[in-house]
Simulated scan of single mutants.
Amino acid sequence: MSRFINWKNDWFSGNFQLFVDGAQRGMIRFSTWRSDAESMFEDKNYQFVNEGFWQSRTKVIDRKTNEVVAIITYDSWKSKAVISLNTGEQYEWKSTGIWKTQFTVSNYKDAHIMYSANSNSGAISSDTDNELLIVAGLFIKQIYNKRVAVLIACLIPVITASVNRH
């Protein structure tokens, strides 16, 4: 069964709104000063809690049961992540477009979610009903976007100082 979901992103806050057939059916809201987030989609409610100095892992907690239902592990050198469900299943998140405007979540068997993005909106095509995987894909996208923003913010003073020396 294919699902089609549209999303909008507030560039400043990083928050997402999820739409099915034109009606808002979910959201992802990020903490103000951290990369932790809370999501609601359909009847599921998850909290994403980052761990580690470089935020190399994220615990996904089902808000109804307070159970850790997944761990997301990030590859710091590539735009890839692994979503490990507490059932033992694993799914790979990876960027597929040259401009980082397309990405997928897949187990390479029976679950495949494709995301496309432009400046502040996009679309999701999913052949699974797993709400956790659908929102986790957008969460991971935002984590990598924040990493790029931090890298740029750190490099600008270095570049400016080296240009001003000469």
Rank of each mutant, 00 (worst) to 15 (best):
D21Q: 11
R25G: 06
S56V: 12
K64Q: 12
S119H: 06
I124R: 00
W77V: 07
V163K: 10
S162P: 07
W99Y: 12
K100L: 03
H166S: 13
M27Q: 15
S95D: 07
F53I: 06
P157G: 03
I124G: 01
V68K: 01
S162H: 13
W7A: 03
S13T: 15
Q90G: 10
N120L: 08
G137V: 01
A161Q: 12
I159F: 08
T128D: 14
D127F: 00
V163A: 08
V135I: 00
R165Y: 15
T104C: 14
M40H: 13
G52Q: 05
L18V: 02
K44I: 02
I72H: 05
N145I: 06
L133Q: 05
G97L: 05
A37W: 03
S79P: 08
V150K: 07
L138A: 02
A149C: 13
H166T: 14
N86T: 08
T87W: 10
I72G: 04
G14H: 05
I98Q: 09
L18H: 10
I159V: 10
N120I: 08
N15W: 01
K8E: 14
I140M: 09
S2D: 13
D110W: 11
W7Q: 01
A117H: 10
E51R: 07
Y115P: 01
N86G: 13
I61M: 03
P157K: 05
Q47L: 15
I98G: 06
Q24S: 10
V20P: 02
S116W: 01
S35A: 13
W33N: 10
M27I: 08
N15I: 05
Q102L: 01
S119Q: 09
L151A: 15
K64F: 09
F4E: 10
Q142G: 09
N120C: 04
I152G: 07
F4Q: 15
Q102G: 08
N45M: 14
N130Q: 07
S31H: 12
S125P: 06
D62M: 06
Y74C: 02
E51F: 08
F16H: 06
G22L: 03
V49C: 15
H112T: 08
L138K: 01
V135M: 00
Q142F: 04
A111F: 04
L132T: 02
T101V: 08
W93M: 00
S31R: 06
V82C: 01
V82N: 10
I152V: 15
Q47T: 12
F53K: 06
D110H: 13
N86S: 15
Q47Y: 03
D36I: 11
T73K: 07
K44W: 11
D43L: 11
K100Q: 05
F103L: 04
E51I: 14
E67S: 12
R147I: 04
S2W: 08
I143A: 02
T160E: 11
G22H: 11
Y46P: 00
V69G: 02
S125H: 04
N107F: 05
R165W: 12
R3D: 11
T87K: 09
H166E: 13
K146W: 03
R147D: 02
I159P: 01
S2N: 13
F41E: 00
A117W: 00
